[in-house]
Every structure is written in structure tokens, then in C-alpha cells.
Write a protein that binds this DNA or RNA. Sequence first.
DNA 1: ATGGTGCATGTTTAC
DNA 2: TAAACATGCACCATG
Length: 791
Amino acid sequence: MGSKMCMNATCGATSTVEWKKGWPLRSGALADLCFRCGSAYESSLFCETFHMDQSGWRECYLCSKRLHCGCIASKLMVEFMDYGGIGCTTCVNCNQLNLNKRGESPNVFSRLPMKTPHMNGESGMSEADLFSQSLRCDSQPLVPGGDKREDFMPHRGFGHLLKSEMHESSPSQQPSLNMALASLPYSPSFANPGDGKKDMNGASQSHIVQSSASSVLQRPSKTVIGTPVGSSKSAHARIGRPPVEGRGKGHLLPRYWPKYTDKEVQQISGNLNLNIVPLFEKTLSASDAGRIGRLVLPKACAEAYFPPISQSEGIPLKIQDVRGKEWTFQFRFWPNNNSRMYVLEGVTPCIQSMMLQAGDTVTFSRVDPGGKLIMGSRKVANAGDIQGGGVTNGTSNEDTSSSGVTETPSSVNAASGPSHIPEEMRGLPEHMTSSPYDGNGLKKSETNGAMMCDDLPRVKERKRSRTIGTKNKRLLLHSEESMELRFTWEETQELLRPAPSSKPSIVLVEDHEFEEFDDPPVFGKRTFITSRPSGEQERWASCDECSKWRRLPVDALLSLKWTCVDNVWDETRCSCSAPEESLKELENALRGGKEYKKRRSGGSQAAKTVQEPSGLDALASAASAAVLGDALGEPEVATTTRHPRHRVGCSCIVCIQPPSGKGRHKPSCACNVCSTVKRRFKTLMMRRKKKQLERDGTAAAAAELESMEVEGKQAETDKSKGEKEGRIDLNSDPYNREDNEAVAVEKGESRRREVGESSGEAQGGGDVVGITELATEAEKIKISEEPKGSN
DNA sequence: ATGGTGCATGTTTAC
DNA sequence: TAAACATGCACCATG
């Protein structure tokens, strides 16, 4: 055990052994007490006696007023701490010292109204200067010979950092606590740089102040987007700030520093009409965002800012999101290698509510007063940007936080947040991803030049990204899912083609020919359909070789790879050497579409890189468009949604529907689709009754049956008539030779398939009101009917 | 069979 | 090298 010096300025005793165990700290450990004066050595004691619950507010024991410095810092930081390690504070209001509960002599610093260090934009002063000016020593040396505060203060402020940064502290003077991040801005040890009379092993106090301050202040800048200190833009900058003090001994890693911009804090504060104290944040891992619903909390953060728990089961913890909704999570821990692993359980609903996924960031703040925990979020750059799918100005890299406060990505360069997105996937230089604030706090933070130039973290970032890129497959997959696997049913449909080798067999269903394939469909080339002024439709496809657009028959189905040579429809343009036709029509059709824009603006190179995607590329493109809600030109312009195997002229339920998203049909709608649906449902009902009656077998029932059959025949006649007019039964299944779900019902075929067809088609199309409902109804009917039938 | 829970283990990172 | 953390996985409960 190294020698310790009593932290009580009035004592200053040094001993290597004679330290008594004192009262329990919040951490559960026992404080070391000075053998002479009984003061605590453990700096983690501070705030022990007058602990600030979680709010960071206290009431003056003398004037009964809340300690409040009245400056803007109060909204961001806890203003008062117990300096001196014995839990005493000077009330700024009455300037009286508050003894701690043990009645020990006050030996305190109080804070003068100050600007928050990171808000010192106009002053041009260094943060260290502001720290110094914002603190003053109120204590009077109680022992002749002066205040020995500087003897021990470095232990609790920047001191421990000096250990690593300067290697100047002797082991005996190394602190027993690591409250650096919490206490840094408040460290009174540097309040009076010129006041230092003693060297710390040779280092002057002023030196220490300077060095330590700079070393500390540089830290955030290495890991987060940071505006240079003193910048007037600091209110917008996402500076990773050391959070307010917590009770934990370990200081928080910069990656957990809350990286709010001041505007965001103000925004949250404004939203909730509360003072917000940012605590920490965490980038969601795949498992955090997964279905397990467990959010692993950084140990230091959990111990510093969440209530202490001694049982593994933990406690329910209420956390409010910035919309005001209160969530209750189970805050608990697991034993882990003689340590603890803290988790929040039951976060899935909240995560989903905030629409967060792996890579996004959750932020934890505290409300002053009250100590209520607030959970915010910050979404990672969106998939499209990650994919590099479009050149952005950086403004779209981040999503609006579901928290109501839009936050920038938790730093492009930060070790957390978007860093989990492999740089290779970004497609953009990192500096492109800095985002400007929109001024109202609702979007974007400003570009930060400081971090753009900071290569160190970028190197680190790349290292991490590579690792994650190869290792964290879940996260990667998730991103890929976002980009490539989320496409709509219709978008998939339009890309499906019959397998090249498969020969269709023609099936005649109610006078309609259907091609049926034994092989599953394959992905085909994406094409565009345009309409001529005459109304005639034609299809356009881009050659995979020369990227020239070729006009094709509307019913042309192209394989995944398609080149001019495959253009069997136009002999004059079946070679890449043939000139391209006027693209006027195509351009018109695609005007406003992304593909078109890309192609037009990109020149030859762009034409090469942004050429019409094929197959999975097209899927990815479609997926991106779907995900991003992009205004991509509709690939199938002026056409209806099609089955992959359906040809032009197909009048099945899918093909006759308007393109998706064209609105729902009204209940009274008498269009082809709706009337067909209704008719079909009627038939279903009729058959159900018929079966019911057959079972009953009563004479009356027979009579009813007779009349029903008359009705039914009439219905069938209508149906047949309708089909001959170009309509087709809703339940016609182009894949089913026997078609006719009624037949299927009678044959006991799967109701699931049946209903699935109906509802699925309805969904695939324009969400025709009634289809789903009717199908559901039919399902119910059959379900209720089946047990009876089977018995 | 499925999903939840608790712990173990491998990887990463800070010191 | 040790701590922290992400995730795998065995075990158990439930339907």
C-alpha cells in the first residue's frame, strides 16, 4: 500500500498504513479515513454526504435555496460538487458554507456563475481559462500555514490524467478514483493556477493546469466531431463532452460521452421544458437492437448514472423518451469475470418505437431537477448514403431522431455510432458525411472542419471498421438488408422471369391461356415501359455491354444479362455498334426519376456506373428506392402490376389492378376487381350454405337449397358472362390448372393457399378494399365449417 | 418447436 | 494484460 496523503486540507497527514475504513461509499466499498483527522481519502466520496440524488441539485442548508449558479451551464452540467472530499459546498446564493452531514469542516470551492466551457464561443478563451475563472476558493485556511488543497486536489481533478499524460505524479499521489470525466470541468484544483505553491513532483501547478487541461480537452476532439474550442459554432458542434459527475470510479470512455450539440440539448430541454444533463450514449450493437431486448450498458456508465444495484435481478428503471413516453426497463447485471455486465432488459419496444437499429445511437440524459432519466436516439446514416447510392451534400446522412431531436450521427469519426458502418460501404469520404445544422435544431449539425482533418481517429476508425466489417456480420447484414433485401412485393414481381430453360406448359382455364412453368422464376433485367402518344406501350432496356437504350416490345422479357445482341426484335439495333434511338420518350417517362437524373448528369462515366441495373442490382436499386421512399421513376410506367408469368393482356386479379399505391377502392366501388370479389364471395357463401343444408338434410333445407341453386346458377352465369367480357374470377389461379377456389374448397384444398392468393394479390395490387376482408371472411367461414365437415 | 434467460466465451480495447 | 463488451449457447419454460 502506497503512502496516502490526507485530502483534508486542514490535516494533510501522510501515512502508508494507517488508514481506517470508514463509512460505506455508494459503491459499497468502505472509504479510507485519515488516521489523524478522520477525513476520507477516497475522492469518490465527494457528493457522498450531500449526494445529489440524480438531479445534481441540492438545497442550501442555510438559506434553503437550491444551489443554482444561474448560468446556462446549469442546463448542461451539475453545477456544484463537493470539493474537498468531505461533502461541503458553498451556496452560491448566500455564499455560506454548508457543512456536510458529518459536521466536518468545510473546505470547499464554490462555483461562480460561469459559462459552460464548451459554450465559451465568444470569449475566445480556452476552456481551461474559463474553468479557472469560473471557480473560486471560498475556504479559508483553517490551519496556519496555508491551504494545502493543492496538495491533494490533483488527485481528484485532472490529477489522474496527469498520471498517464505526464507521468509526473508519484504513485503515492495517484488518486484512488477516476472521476476525471465527471469532475474535469469542475476540478477546483486548477482554480487558481497562480495559487499553486507546491509542485507536484516538480511540475508547477500552472504547468499542470495547462497540460492537463489541454490534454483533457484534446481528448474529445480526437474522437468526436468537435469544433475548435472557442468557435462560435460550438453550440452546433457535436462535441463529445465529459458527462456530469457520477458516482462511479472509472471514468467514461470518450465513446460514451454524450455528443449532443448544444442546440440539441436545448431542443430536448425545450421539448420537455426541463433542464437536461447529458450523461452518456451508446451505439447499438446488433444484439442490442435485436429481438432479445437487452441493451448492454457500458459498465462505467451504468455504475455512474444508474441506481446502484446489488442483486443480479436488478431493479425496474423508468426512463422517459423525449416524446414524454415513459418506459420501464429492468436494469440489472450479470456476473462476468469477477465483474459485472449491466444490461437494460425489455428495450425492444422502445427501440422499435424509436425505429432504431444496430449502428444507431441511444443517448441517456438526466432531467434537472428531478433526476428523471431521459432516453434519446440518433440514427445512423441512412442506408442509401451508406451504400453510396447517391452523392449527397451530407444533409441526408442522418435521420431525424425519433426522439424529436434530430441529432447528427454520433460523429463520423467517433469510435461509436456510424463507425460501425464499414468505410468501404460508405461510398463517400467521411467529410462528406458531416452534416449542417438546419438552424432550427431539427436537422443536421454543421460540418466540422476540425474533425475532417483529424486523421488519427480516422485511421483508428478504419481499423475498427475493417474489423467490424469482417466480423460483425450481423450488423453488416442488417445494413445490407436495409439496402438490398427490403423491396416490395411488386418490385420483386417485376423482376421475376421464367427460368430460361424452362418450357411452359399451356394451361387453359376458363378460356384463358396460362403458361405454367415447372422451374422457379429467376431474376430478370429491369426495364422501363413507356407509352407513346398513341397509347401504344413499349419497353426500354439498357444493354449491359454498351449501356445504350433499346426499344423493345412491351411484352419482351429479358434475362438477367441482356445485350444488344439479344435484341431479336430489332435487327437494326441488335448490335452495340448501332446508334441509340432518341430517348425522348424514355426521358419523359423517367423525368424526375433518379435513374434518369443519374444517367443524364453523370456523363459517360456515370452512364457506365449508373447504368441500368440488372437482376439483383436492380433489386437493390429498387430496394433502396423503396427504403428511401425515393421518387424513382416507376419502372413500369403506365402499366399495371403484373405477375411474373403473366403476359400482356392477362386479366387476372393482379394484372387488372391499378399499380400499387393508387388508393383503396371504396366499398361501393363497382369496378371490375371489386365486383369480381363480391361475386366470388357471394358464390362462396352460397356454397357454404349449400353444404350446410346438405348436412342438415331437412326437407325445408332441400327447398331452400333448390332456390339457392337457382341463385347460384344465376351467379355462375353472371360470372361466366363477366369472364367472357374480359374479367376473370378473383380466385383464378394462373398456377392452378383447376383454378377455381370453389373447386378447391370442395376438394378440401388448403384454405391457406386460397386465402393467401386472394389477400396476397390484393395486397400486391392496389389494396382493394374488400378483398382482404372478404378473404378473411371466407377464411372464417371455412374454418368454422371444417371441423363440422371433418367430423 | 419456440422463445426467454443466464452464463460463458471470444474479441476488442484501454492501460 | 486485463477489463469491457458483443454475442453464442445451453438450459428451461411455455404453447
